[in-house]
Amino acid sequence: MDVFVQLILNGILLGSMYAIISVGLTLIFGIVRVVNFAHGEFLMVGMYAVYLLAANLGFHPYVSAVPIVILLFAMGALVQRFIIQPLLGADEHIQIFAMVGLSTALVNLALLIFGADLYSVNTPSVRQSIAFGGYTLLIGQLVMFFCALALVAGLHFFMQTTPLGRAIRATAQNRNAALLMGVRVNRIYIFSFGLGAACVGLASALLMPLYPVTPTIGTYFVLTAFVVVVLGGMRSMYGAFAGAMIIGIVDSLSGYYIAPDLKEVVYFAIFILILIFKPTGLFGLGRGTE
């Protein structure tokens, strides 16, 4: 029983990590309708930036969250403006090629600059574990959990109450109708892509104390993030959050009760079942909206 509770706790915390990454992916997919194959590499860039700020200026990773979120926002906006925008009229798979190309380029750029060595930031305070009732949690994981909650709540508030949020929702629902209503759709796209990338910026600041960064670190997280996004219904932020929690818990439980090397099998099996029985995802808006 003890182990079970520990595994569930662990799964929730793991889930919140996936949630922050997946929410960004969902935003970009849901609004701009581009599958961001370079999402993991954005994370990698963010983590190197956190490392550089910590190593050169002594910034605590959580402090760097502010500049990194701005940096990643800018990076996302630039990618949208200069890579995706010119391809908006083109076939969807051209956009995919562009993003995959960008991802490969970023990985190799990191290899060129930093080499294959791993870099880490030493923050013992974040890695402190707190024990209660025989269960252990890391402070860093707890912070991640609350940040994930705050992020989803904040985005919800933003989308529902601000004019910009309304314009974004309108664009996501119907691009042409939004255009007719005077929404500057291309600007909305740039902003939304930036927002999605900014979520990754937040994720990188939160992840850096827990994981060392290497050029391929993105691939560790992003495959799972794709599963989460599909599970959550592609365009639903809340779906992504719930999907992340489910995957986190499944990951944790199956790693223990089945076998650590089979946990991917378990959640990909769930993934396939969902695609078969509910192709629009758990929280999808119905057929045709994906």
């Binding site: 182990v3 595994l7 790693g255 650590p260 090397d261 946990k263």
Partner: peptide
């Protein structure tokens, strides 16, 4: 005997298995 993926982001299940 526990295999795991080198790309795993969480080895807690492995450690808990060893521990128990």
């Amino acid at each position: 005997t526990l295999p795991y993926s080198a790309k795993s982001v969480d080895l807690t299940p492995v450690i808990l298995r060893l521990k128990s």
